[in-house]
Design a binder for these strands. Structure first.
Lengths: 185, 185, 185, 185
DNA sequence: GATGAATGAGTCTTCATTCAT
DNA sequence: GATGAATGAAGACTCATTCAT
């Protein structure tokens, strides 16, 4: 219970604050309505909170994307791609500041980065394999890498540089073009 | 003089350290062979050092890329694209840890991010305009956004996830495909 | 039951640890297979555990020494003295780290120190009285003080400075000389 | 300057307090009339303060003893021994609580213990060598060990168990007897 | 009696910044 | 301009103790 309260408090603090850093343990505890001691009953260290947060967040994001675009898994890639882009944009729009903060923090922790990125990439590889016959590139793993990186990059660009324009359709069309031309010839 | 010594000391410290954070002002000063007081004579605050560093770094990166791929500005895009990718990879390989640290720091400062990204993007827009006749996408600004974001994303992915493989040629070929198919039809 | 489990757990923890301090109550409880709450049902405070420990330990030490050298009580002092030294050394070798920790802690609690030292001294005084005719010093209480202090000091010196040499015979001979010459003329 | 202020403040705090422990860094700083930060400019850690204190204290004690009994170095051992005992007692009477606290703390740090005890022991060995012809025991190093340990033990006993009686002459006579009979046959 | 989650004051330590020299 | 000692708020973390269940 307190475990979740701590995580939720951190999420809120992160979503509210302007600068990137993880809040102090005391601040998190106060916001969670518990004492610092309690916080340390559930997490070994400040870093452990971050890790838990990143894991939960990445699963939530995956779930969101899947629930948006997942059902289309069997449709033609040409239809799935724009849906996927929309789903990714929507998932990123839920808590953009939190997302930014977590991305920022994960950047300097390769192990955590991998832990979070590998399953997501595996999902994409699976989808590519499903449609192997119409997918142009042969190295599916390399393709998945490029794919996920590019989509995230585009969305992050929008998010970090000009959040207001995240809903725009122009960059989506362009990104869709990029992917379709790369994947489908 | 001291101004540059401080910047250089910070660069070195950042490139050496494993964890991401900017070193303490005292540490920077000691490494620069200067007193903290002097440091504050040249920089208003710890943040100011960071900003100066980011600016210088981004210019250096641009210069590196231009000196690598620039001469080809007038060649056919089909030849320039791979050269550009190589140039970007080379520029990122010079001081990868420093680059990571600065990217990390810049992430939560939209103003600084824009200040650094706009000129780079302008360069790309300029190049696209030069070859407007053979460039497929019409919205050059959106194309430049996608272009720079994707290339950086691919390189950062390589850099942050598996630095050893930055020199590989497989991901470059794939990235080249992505760009050529998008830009040149 | 739990009472003894707590004491035994503390003893073990103390004997295992390298640094001197009494372990935390939570640690003791966990090791004892008991909850902190239970611990407080048997001991008023962390200090109370320490006091109980010191008392038990001092009785154990006395018992050990008596069982070693006691039977010789009626023999000639010249024979009892080396036996006593050996018995003291043996008693100290059982749990040297625990002993050190308790000595350390007792040092700043004069009342506890007296409580532990007085009975031991009384034993020695009794023995001296038994052999009053061959014992040179007249002030038996002062002699007992010097005696116990000196033997303990020698053993502690060995124990704290160079535990490996506790089994050596050279310092024992020397200590025996010291005592014999003082007590027996 | 602040360096000494910190040490002096700690000394005073230690001499005043009843329980043994080294005071907190904040307390020391406040008492020294400086900020915690300043404290850390002169000492690497709380432990470093302790070490500095122990070193200074042991030198002060040595100096005190030497200034008391030193001039007699060339006199006959039979005269030097009581003077040495008096000098040791006097040195211990200067700041008994401080001494107790430092002894307590040093107990669990064999390296520091050795650092402090070795020079003192060397002094005694030197003196024994000077009078080798009249000194009975042949192993001077073992004799010095026993000597210093016994004298300290007797004084500490007096100090920790019944400080008021430190000035008494009865235990001194007895201790003197012990040493004379051991050393001089 | 037993539990163990919760407390929160207190610990050591760091660090950006100032200012008298 | 340069120095670097001094500051002190703030940070992460510990731990003896309580109390509702």
């Amino acid at each position: 219970m307190s475990h979740d309260a701590v995580l939720e408090a951190t999420r809120r603090l992160l979503e509210e604050s302007t600068e990137g850093g993880l809040p102090s343990t005391n601040r998190i505890a106060r916001r969670a309505g518990v004492s610092v001691g309690t916080l340390y009953q559930y997490f070994d260290s400040r870093e452990a909170i971050l890790r838990a947060l990143v894991r939960e967040h990445s699963q939530e994001m995956s779930a969101l994307v899947v629930s948006h675009a997942g059902p289309l898994g069997l449709s033609a890639p040409r239809d799935v791609i724009p849906a996927f882009i929309d789903a990714m944009a929507a998932a990123h729009a839920v808590a953009p500041r939190l997302h930014l903060a977590l991305v920022r923090e994960t950047l300097s922790d390769p192990a955590l980065l991998a832990e979070v990125q590998d399953p997501a990439r595996a999902l994409v590889v699976g989808w590519l394999e499903l449609h192997r016959d119409v997918i142009r590139p042969k190295d599916l793993s390399a393709a998945a890498f490029l794919l996920t990186r590019s989509v995230e990059a585009a969305i992050h660009g929008q998010l970090f540089e000009d959040p207001a324009r995240l809903g725009d359709t122009s960059w989506r069309r362009e990104l869709c073009d990029l992917l379709v031309r790369y994947l489908l010839e």
